[in-house]
């Protein structure tokens, strides 16, 4: 059984935001417009966090693409009264939209604020509604949604590999953000397979987990940025 994980090389990330756009397109994430976005209703399953360090003019800008960390011990899961948020056997932190009644408890429990609430029914500006992904369900008003590691792609590739009677090749599954990353800062794969690229990167001495001390055992590893001083 695989355990899916991701590595994000902060040395490569230039903060272009391509992953955010790709994610919106792949996962049918509705945009809410500038007015609602300013009220905190934007839904970016992946976001590029920007942190500035130092005082002007010696300012350093750091980017951190942040998405659901698919925690091993996810705080969002036990708090859900209806099992909408639960753990799959391959280590994914699944969100079943149809079970969700919208208590929003999971979002409060999430240390990464990686969960988003649908404040309104989804809508798209024409002609964007024509490019919806048929593999991903739309979410109605009142449910929580979040990054799934593009579970539709994982399951699709698993099915293909099974019908062809072979194992899944490393790098064969690419979530939309990984696929769109022009600097190849994001790498996705099976952490159980010690030969896979993501597994190799996760063991890198540059690697660390986000908010590791909260005890969530995330599946995403961030590779530290190498600076001149380091």
């Amino acid at each position: 059984m695989a355990r899916w994980g991701m590595a994000a090389d902060l040395d490569r990330c230039n903060g272009c935001g391509g992953c955010v756009v790709a994610c919106h397109a792949e996962n049918n994430i509705s945009t809410v417009g500038p007015e609602q976005a300013s009220r905190g209703r934007a839904k970016h399953w992946i976001r590029v966090e920007r942190y500035w360090e130092g005082d002007f003019p010696d300012v350093k800008l750091k980017f951190r693409p942040t998405m659901c960390q698919q925690c091993g011990n996810a705080p969002c899961e036990p708090v859900c009264p209806t099992y909408a948020s639960h753990h799959t056997e391959d280590g994914l932190n699944a969100q079943v939209y149809n079970r969700c009644i919208g208590t929003r408890y999971c979002a409060n429990a999430c240390p990464y604020n990686a969960r988003f609430f649908d404040f309104f029914n989804p809508s798209w500006e024409k002609p964007l509604q024509l490019q919806l992904n048929p593999d991903v369900s739309l979410r109605e008003v009142g449910v929580m949604e979040k990054c799934t590691f593009c579970v539709q792609r994982i399951r699709g590739t698993q099915t293909t590999a099974k019908t062809e009677g072979r194992e899944i090749r490393d790098g064969e599954i690419q979530p939309a953000c990984v696929q769109a990353c022009s600097t190849r800062a994001l790498v996705f794969g099976d952490l159980e397979d010690r030969e896979s690229e993501v597994s190799r990167l996760s063991r890198s001495p540059r690697g660390s987990k986000l908010l590791e001390d909260v005890g969530t055992r995330p599946a995403v590893t961030y590779l530290a940025r190498l600076t001149e001083e380091a």
């Binding site: 925690c71 091993g72 899961e77 099992y83 639960h86 753990h87």
Partner: peptide, 14 residues
């Protein structure tokens, strides 16, 4: 049995 947050499936405390 549904795994949530790595808790035991049937745990005494909760």
């Amino acid at each position: 049995p549904i795994n949530v947050g790595g808790l035991p499936t049937w745990a005494w405390w909760p």
